[in-house]
Design a protein around this nucleic acid. Structure first.
Lengths: 147, 147
DNA sequence: TTAAAGTCAAGCGAATGTGTCGGAATTGGG
DNA sequence: CCCAATTCCGACACATTCGCTTGACTTTAA
């Protein structure tokens, strides 16, 4: 199983925004530089996030992006769905004339259940969870104070 | 989330073999015809299944494929893994110079956990489970005897 | 006014997905 | 022994998607 850079970069950008101390706009350029990501490509990825209402943009100098909602109210599923575009839910991909007579469709028996499991997993984690984990890891790696 | 025809067709083929009454070889041609799948393409998909030791081939006339093990001993994960080829487990996809100093890696925080969830789900279901569901659905759609 | 940003559209090379084609090797049956 | 069925193998082709670049335009703070 391989995850596209599209989803990975987009998730990184969302995490970067979530880790931003206040509601100060963070520019795509800054995110791209700090994470060594291609700037213009990242820009493309943020667009669907904006369209999905997950981030808000501030144009002009000192502009950038901020989360449109508290991190706790944004699930990883929201992010992945926004990035993956129209999920193209083919109700059933069995070809029209296929042996289908016995009423069983693998799409439901296997892939839908799997998709449900994935969705549940992603829906159960919020961007705030991720941010907190990131902060904790940061603390562990470079603690501000030794005990 | 979209599943490739590769995995879907391959799974259908495995189910077809699992539903085969005895250990009588089932040819690719027969599977392809019954499920309206491209024959030569399906042939390509069965090759990795054979290499993974999930099916056994019988060449020549009246030849075909049979499951190499009882359906209960083949998990859906086995099938998906065999079809997806070398899973290419990049330990960490963060670029070398990336901001990584704080010791946190999204790959582990998000994608690895998700992959684990997917693997667990697939590993928990056997081809026998799937076959039984298929038989049950078949029964429901066209019962042999009315009560 | 100007520089820093977002916004939009187009395109492009490489990889991947989805097959197709042709042919060699093997085997059972007539 | 021969033939048809079938697996096996490799190459190729076509379309789509991925990952990314380029360039032009708009908006806004300083």
């Amino acid at each position: 199983m391989r995850f596209s850079t599209r989803v990975r970069y987009g998730m990184q950008a969302m995490l970067a925004l979530a880790m931003r101390p206040q509601q100060v706009p963070l520019s795509v350029k800054e995110i791209a530089e700090r994470h060594s990501l291609p700037e213009h490509y990242l820009e493309q990825l943020i667009t669907p996030l904006r369209r999905a209402g997950l981030v808000q943009s501030a144009r002009g100098a000192q502009g950038g992006y901020v989360l449109a909602h508290p991190a706790a109210e944004i699930s990883l599923r929201d992010i992945v769905e926004a990035l993956e575009g129209p999920v193209a839910v083919d109700e059933c991909s069995c070809p029209p004339g296929a042996e289908h007579a016995f009423g069983y469709c693998l799409e439901h028996g296997v892939w839908r259940k799997l998709k449900q499991t994935i969705d549940d997993h992603l829906a159960s984690r919020s961007l705030a969870d991720l941010r907190d984990e990131a902060f904790a890891a940061e603390q562990e790696a470079a603690p501000a104070y030794e005990i």
